[in-house]
Design a protein around this nucleic acid. Structure first.
Length: 213
DNA sequence: TGCCAGGCCCTCTTTAGGGCCTT
């Protein structure tokens, strides 16, 4: 493995979209993308950009995100922003909270610019449901409180949410070290966890930590 | 007019239904 490949293997981009609604299949578009790049557990870069979806957003979305039609009127197009974002992520693996949602919008927006990427997704929500089975719920904000993760108090903006998700991701890696003696949890291992039943995860992690997987 | 997401996951399940998550 050469140096660049080795570096890529340890690079993860944690991302979050703000959008006009819940479904690109129903015509919804991205209005903001935020992301942080992690290398070997350290934040090395970040990305945040509003984008103009070409139509007005609802008052619900204005209230939910704080992103107004006025703010979007001067923003570059989705196509411009997503072209820049494609360069930012490269082929790194990706993390998001409820990743199926962000993956749908990433794929839909990349389709519009005919861009393909090779990275794979891991879902912090699915992993948290398995690792933190005693949490009151698994909303991002609730998990941040549950794990005493420091925030700046901003929610539902793309960069702030991606930063919180990145901190949650690193916390989960740390907890796997302390609770299951897994010193360097790989991205693949995290994906494996998200696909196992909740009941099977503790035994799986115990055996992995003891090198018996 | 009325409807409108999609995937995961649990259970009073599997020939189903509904809550949880994301905006």
């Amino acid at each position: 493995m050469n140096i660049s490949t080795s570096s890529l293997a340890n690079t993860v981009v944690v991302l979050d979209f703000e959008t006009t609604g819940l479904s690109p299949n129903q015509g919804d578009r991205a209005i903001e993308i935020g992301a942080v790049k992690l290398e070997n557990g350290q934040v090395v870069d970040q990305f945040q950009q509003l984008m103009n979806p070409g139509r007005r957003v609802s008052s619900f979305i204005e209230g939910y995100t704080g992103i107004t039609n006025t703010m979007l009127s001067d923003a570059p197009s989705c196509e411009e922003v997503m072209t820049d974002f494609a360069s930012f992520i490269g082929d790194a693996n990706l993390v998001a909270h409820n990743a199926s949602f962000d993956q749908r919008f990433l794929d839909a927006e990349f389709d519009r610019i005919s861009h393909r990427y090779d990275g794979e997704f891991a879902c912090s929500l699915l992993i948290a449901r398995r690792l933190y089975q005693d949490a009151p719920n698994h909303k991002l904000g609730s998990l941040v409180t549950y794990k005493n993760i420091e925030t700046d108090g901003v929610f539902h903006r793309a960069l702030a949410d991606s930063e919180m998700t990145a901190k949650l991701w690193l916390q989960m890696l740390e907890d796997m070290k302390t609770d299951f003696d897994i010193q360097s949890p790989s991205f693949k291992l995290m994906q494996q966890i998200s696909k196992k039943t909740k009941a099977a995860v503790p035994t799986f992690l115990y055996r992995t930590g003891k090198g018996r997987a």
